[in-house]
Amino acid sequence: MEQPMKHRRKEPQNLHELGVGQCGVVTEIRSTGAMKRRLVDMGITPGTTVYVRKVAPLGDPIQINLRGYELLVRGSEAREILIRTGV
């Protein structure tokens, strides 16, 4: 059944917009240079499913789960990781 309009929210576009407890599939990493390399080295490659576990008490960084382990990423980096939700 389709949700009523007022409950429908804008689909999250990047990892930062994903709420706690939500999953997304990485589509693109916008960061550049060493940071981009570090992110893919840690396993954030296109096609990887990422789950947002927690937000730090002060609102940043965020704790994500991917490939069976937990990783901390700052909001500024999470914004550069584009994702899609749903299947």
């Binding site: 240079g33 060493a34 940071m35 570090r38 992110l39 840690m42 960084p61 704790q63 382990y69 937990e70 990783l71 901390l72 990423v73 700052r74 980096e77």
Partner: peptide, 10 residues
């Protein structure tokens, strides 16, 4: 200087 904060939570 590159100082990434991409930290594993063991």
């Amino acid at each position: 200087v590159f100082s990434p904060f991409v930290l594993e939570l063991p």
